[in-house]
Design a protein around this nucleic acid. Structure first.
Length: 270
DNA sequence: TTCCATGTTCCGCA
DNA sequence: TTGCGGAACATGGA
């Protein structure tokens, strides 16, 4: 489920397994997932270099690539986006996992696989991660230090769209997707189809608070639903006949700008 | 067989 | 011109 919490977990996983390793060989199995960079150019930029640090913005993960030379001309960032089905897997086994699209072999014999079954992800290269974010017109990171309530309220409260669409718009706030927006709105007891501009200040405050609380709890749970609090919609999302942990009424589903949305029709009144 | 799925992008319509 | 909603994209599982 690659939304902000999932990508944060991938970041921490990469940090723990692959940071400071030297890339011995690079395999690209599908060019479909490449952005502006060519297969040949990406290989040249990665081979012999080291994974120096990582940075996440919204659902994008950036990996700083460098080497020991003082000449930093070739240095830059490997860009990873996970689409709907992407993930990372570090391993020492011989065969890469199924649906591996990019494989980094390290000098110690292990490798890091970028797996993306549905090919909706992205692998790219940039010299300047912040400029990449600007060019993509991504909004402020949902867990960014500088996102305070005042700014949140200005960004979201101005929208005529359904609050769910407003929260999912990556150009407004980056990192939230279908699943976690449902969770935030459930915790805040706000119906997903409520027009953002019609939210009361109290509701906006509640959504802002729950946004931080939900994302942080999800990261602590390593983005695994069954490790999350039982009071979470996510804990039982998709289960047949799942009931609201607060009031016991069955969850309803509806479509909001094309995405399936789960909510409790009793706790989340329109 | 048909429908659905956590992602973004693009097109048409106010 | 801008904001919004829906379809398309690729693939596999129910």
């Amino acid at each position: 489920m690659p939304e902000l919490p999932d990508v944060q977990v991938f970041k921490e996983y990469l940090d723990a397994t692959s940071l400071h390793q030297v890339i011995r060989e690079v395999e690209i199995f599908r060019r479909d997932i490449l952005g502006g960079v060519s297969s040949r150019s990406l290989k040249r930029r990665l081979k012999g270099k080291r994974l120096e640090s990582t940075w996440r913005h919204g659902k994008f993960l950036f990996v700083r690539i460098g080497d020991d030379d003082d000449d930093a001309d070739d240095d830059g960032w490997l860009v990873l986006h996970f689409g709907m089905t992407g993930l990372l897997e570090y391993s020492k086994s011989k065969n890469p996992p199924e649906h591996t699209r990019l494989l980094l072999h390290f000098e110690d014999g292990a490798h890091l696989a970028y797996i993306c079954m549905r090919l909706l992800g992205l692998v790219d290269w940039t010299n300047d991660a912040e400029r990449f974010v600007q060019d993509k017109e991504l909004g402020i990171d949902a867990l960014g230090e500088d996102l305070d309530f005042e700014q949140f309220s200005e960004l979201i409260g101005a929208k005529q769209a359904a609050v769910k669409s407003a929260l999912m718009d990556q150009e407004t706030i980056a990192g939230l997707g279908n699943v976690y927006v449902d969770e935030i709105l459930f915790q805040a007891r706000v119906h997903p189809k409520t027009r953002a501009a019609r939210l009361s200040e109290k509701q906006l405050r509640e959504i802002f608070q729950q946004l931080r609380r939900v994302l942080k709890a999800a990261i602590r749970a390593r983005a695994q639903p069954k490790r999350m609090p039982k009071s979470f919609l996510l804990y039982r999302r998709g289960e047949n006949g799942a009931k609201c942990p607060r009031c016991g009424s069955p969850f309803q589903s509806t479509k909001v700008s094309g995405r399936t949305s789960y909510f409790c029709s009793r706790c989340q009144q329109p």
